[in-house]
Design a protein around this nucleic acid. Structure first.
Length: 481
RNA sequence: GGCGCUAUCGUCUAAUGGUUAGGACGCCGCCCUCUCAAGGCGGUAAUACGGGUUCGAAUCCCGUUAGCGCUACCA
């Protein structure tokens, strides 16, 4: 393969947000391009006017940017082969559709949607595959001219060969073959003048000199039509690689309804871009080693299309959680705190004391799979009064030994200048020496007195947040109840 | 229904004719430990089924089954 010529594209239709399946397709295209010193292009396929969604394009670009998948050519960055938005290329497609008509490789079709529906119903009733019956395929030039002049709505259809097979090589699946007999005379230009995916896609991939088409497996059945189109135009077709699908836990194509599918949803919950990228990269691909943590640059270095899997992969949130937690752990205390602050604020917690907020995050950070979870663990720090979470907690406090421990701790605390995570161990040592209590009997009453709970962060980290006065206040309030 | 793709632990996957079928997530246990996490150590668990080919098959071939995808004037 000539490395100089690798050009690939990610060509989503802007229907609202970036789907994780889309992200995976974009990522594999990106990795393939960068690995081969090629170009990665973003093209927008918005030929369906009915599916226009306000702000979708901006949103898509934003998410791609956050994920670090920068493109060499595309909508907002330009390039030599623009425009990169299909709705702005209508005239181009018209020209090529006309060329196909001229070459007798396509024809005008004047059938009404009603007639088409009728034909379809009859075929289904007869248990035949629903296909266009080629009613308009052999219209004479005069008939066509007449109908055109009388303004009957029309589409342009592809003239599929009646016989033979279409065979092509898929980089992931090997040789794939389809019989022309089962191929429909695909609509290339709709009655509103816009091209369908099939025409626009082929024309653009050719004009933009795309070398490899890397897309989802759902496109495999329409690939023979595309191959035929390249042939009809007399063009060389690019190489094809159809990626295995991303699946729901029930093995159907990944979809909303069974969890989040928008990349922005995961971002909003506090999954890190690097973690999402790393996780998604390993869905349907692996480098053949046992290493699992990869930066984007490492992925570029290792990526190769022939290590892409053929079978679909379930999007397992469990593993994403593990991987994200792994990336979270590599963050500094300051970094992770800054990332947690928006979630704390949203919950209404006061984060004005930054030093204190950092200490709180330090105390709970090992629990986090994703940042939004931080609010599940911090109530003990923000609640003004100690409330026993259950019977077990309140009974811990009532024992005689608990009273001894708390009294002793109080006495020592009052003598200390301050209490923090570094001197707390020694303080407890003194309590132990003076009371003769140790282990659970020693520590649990303190934990419950400070937090009201029997579970939670490490005690030194808790007292570090509260400081001397607050610790004393809490212990006293518990003793008095 | 037709066409196509696919098939290794529950999940992501390694092993491209010869391995005690390996790793990771999850789960379980142990260690650490005041608790919960984290961390360390260990365990659980798979070649869909049936035929071939071969000295030898998870791997190649055929069939069966199952799953998924496509079958729009959507992409």
């Amino acid at each position: 393969m000539n490395n100089e010529t690798v050009r690939v594209r990610f060509a989503p239709s802007p229907t609202g947000y970036l789907h994780v399946g889309g992200l995976r397709t974009a990522l594999f295209n990106y990795l393939f391009a960068k690995h081969n010193n090629g170009k990665f292009i973003l093209r927008i396929e918005d030929t369906d006017q009915n599916r226009f969604v306000e702000g979708a394009l901006e949103n898509l670009i934003k998410t791609l940017k956050i994920m670090g998948l920068s493109y060499d050519e595309g909508v907002d960055v330009g390039g030599d082969f623009g425009p990169y938005v299909q709705s702005e290329r209508k005239e181009i497609y018209k020209k090529y559709a006309d060329e196909l008509i001229e070459k007798k490789q396509a024809y005008y079709c004047f059938c009404s949607p009603e007639r088409l529906e009728e034909v379809r119903q009859r075929q289904i009733a007869e248990k035949k595959p629903p296909m266009y019956d080629r009613h308009c395929r052999e219209l004479s030039d005069e008939e066509v001219k007449e109908k055109l002049n009388s303004g009957i709505p029309h589409v342009i259809r592809m003239k599929i060969p009646l016989l033979g097979d279409v065979t092509f090589t898929d980089l992931i699946r090997g040789e794939v073959s389809f019989s022309c007999k089962i191929l429909d005379d695909q609509i290339l230009v709709k009655s509103d003048g816009f091209p369908t995916y099939h025409l626009a896609n082929v024309v653009d991939d050719h004009l933009m000199k795309i070398s490899h088409i890397i897309r989802g497996e759902e496109w495999l059945p329409s690939t023979p039509k595309h191959v035929l189109l390249y042939k009809a135009f007399g063009w060389n077709s690019p190489m094809f690689a159809h990626l295995p699908l991303l699946l729901n836990p029930d093995r159907t194509k990944l979809s909303k309804r069974q969890g989040d599918v928008a990349v922005e949803d995961y971002l909003a919950k506090g999954y890190l871009p690097e973690a999402i990228i790393n996780f998604v990269a390993l869905l349907g691909w692996n480098p053949g080693s046992e290493k699992e943590i990869f930066s984007l640059d490492e992925l570029i270095e290792k990526f190769s299309i022939d290590r892409v899997q053929k079978a679909g992969a379930i999007f397992d949130i469990n593993k994403l959680n593990w991987m994200n937690a792994h990336y979270l752990r590599s963050l500094s205390d300051e970094e992770i705190t800054n990332l947690c602050i928006p979630y704390l604020k949203q919950k209404g917690y006061d984060v004005s004391d930054h030093e204190k907020t950092i200490k709180i995050v330090i105390a709970v950070r090992t629990h986090l799979n994703y940042l939004a979870e931080v609010v599940n663990y911090v109530d003990i720090f923000f609640n003004k009064e100690v409330v026993f979470e259950n019977e077990e907690a309140s009974s811990v406090i009532k024992t005689d030994s608990a009273k001894v421990v708390l009294n002793e701790l109080l006495n020592i605390l009052k003598l200390e200048e301050s209490v923090n995570k570094d001197n707390f161990k020694n303080i407890m040592k003194k309590v132990q020496t003076n009371t003769g209590l140790k282990g659970k009997d020693l520590f649990m009453p303190v934990r419950v007195a400070l937090t009201g709970k029997t579970h939670g962060p490490e005690l030194p980290l808790i007292v570090d947040v509260f400081g001397k006065e607050e610790c004393i206040r809490r212990i006293l309030s518990v003793k008095n109840n």
